[in-house]
């Protein structure tokens, strides 16, 4: 009865996985008259690293809190590791580590004491394993030296690391990190990246919310972009980026004339959306040297021509600025 083996991430990582790590459908949350989440459907495949993007107030944290059963949805359903939440959250949550809305610890306890208190509440941790598990988690986030200092005196980065350690107390099947690099110096950011990579390698599903796009681009396999409580894009990072990739950007003060000239020459061209005096030319037309030669021949001044390479920042900007 007492001897339960901890379900290691390795088991979920190998072989085909049927149940997604998390699934929400028709999710809606209303606080008073404010709609925080408005009809979100999302599936987080097991083993993926999902970057959750969105400007401040887009509903990332509310979505995460509903995933973890901390907040009850107004409508819709949440499933975590195959269990309905919040009804059966206690079945799923032992396998879930989370850092939500910044680290929450007691200032009068040391980092180690704070972790021990949380470790005592971990169902999967045998009482005898609490001390080594806490020590290991502290080691993993690089807090061993400061472990016996009071939390009161921790720097923002140390607090964040301690929060991360709490999420890593036991081997998890899913780790949810809400703004994990908040307040971290570059070394700390690298550590977070390393930890996410380690988790991913071990088959753990990771959900990271961030507004640091480079961060997400570097670590994530999947992306979900939120805007005003709605999901504007979701999918594998690679395919999302590929969809918007390609083409040539030609910067010219006479953009409208350039578009006319290019279209007359059989190329697909349109003005860039951000108001920059530039034209986007698709790859399906003539090759780049010909296009530039054509424009110069027509008497249109070309200030700059570059390959269009969508990065996440651009994609994000496109997605979240569409509505406005």
């Amino acid at each position: 009865m007492t001897a339960h083996s901890v379900i290691g991430p390795a088991e979920t990582g190998t072989g085909p996985v049927a149940t997604p790590a998390a699934r929400v459908s028709g999710l809606r949350k209303v606080f008073g008259s404010t709609v925080a989440i408005d009809g979100i459907d999302l599936e987080v495949p097991a083993g993926s690293v999902l970057g959750m993007l969105g400007p401040n107030g887009s509903g990332k944290t509310t979505l995460i809190r509903m995933l973890l059963g901390l907040t009850r949805p107004t409508a819709g359903t949440v499933e975590l590791l195959g269990h309905p939440v919040p009804a059966a959250a206690d079945l799923a949550l032992p396998h879930v580590g989370a850092l939500v809305e910044g680290p929450g610890f007691h200032p009068f306890l040391t980092g180690r004491e704070n972790l021990r208190r949380l470790a005592a509440a971990e169902p999967l941790l045998a009482t005898a394993d609490i001390r080594p598990a806490v020590a290991a988690a502290l080691e993993r986030v690089g807090l061993t030296a400061a472990a016996d200092r009071r939390y009161r005196g921790y720097s923002l980065g140390m607090k964040q690391r301690l929060g991360l350690a709490a999420a890593l107390l036991v081997p998890r099947r899913l780790v949810v990190l809400d703004e994990p690099t908040n307040g971290l110096d570059p070394a700390g950011t690298r550590d977070v990246r390393r930890i996410i990579a380690e988790l991913h390698a071990a088959g753990t599903t990771v959900i990271v919310s961030s507004h640091l796009l480079a961060e997400v681009e570097a670590t994530c396999t999947h992306v979900a972009v939120l805007q005003s409580g709605g999901l504007v894009a979701t999918g594998e990072l690679a395919s999302l980026l590929a969809a918007g990739t390609g083409g040539l950007i030609v910067v010219t003060p006479e953009a409208d004339a350039a578009v006319r000239a290019l279209r007359a020459a059989g190329a697909t061209a349109y003005r860039t959306r951000d108001g920059e005096p530039a034209v986007v030319v698709s790859d399906d037309g003539p090759p780049a040297p010909e296009i530039i030669a054509l424009l110069v021949r027509t008497g249109i001044p070309v200030h700059e021509a570059r390959r269009r390479r969508t990065n996440l920042e651009e994609l994000f900007a496109q997605l979240t600025e569409d509505g406005s």
Partner: peptide, 24 residues
């Protein structure tokens, strides 16, 4: 035990021992 592991999430412990929680 092994079987329980194989069946997956259903075999989870429901909560930490109450005595441990009270001690904490």
């Amino acid at each position: 035990m092994t079987a329980a592991t194989a069946t997956g999430p259903a075999a989870t412990v429901r909560g930490a021992p109450l005595g441990r929680l009270l001690g904490a």
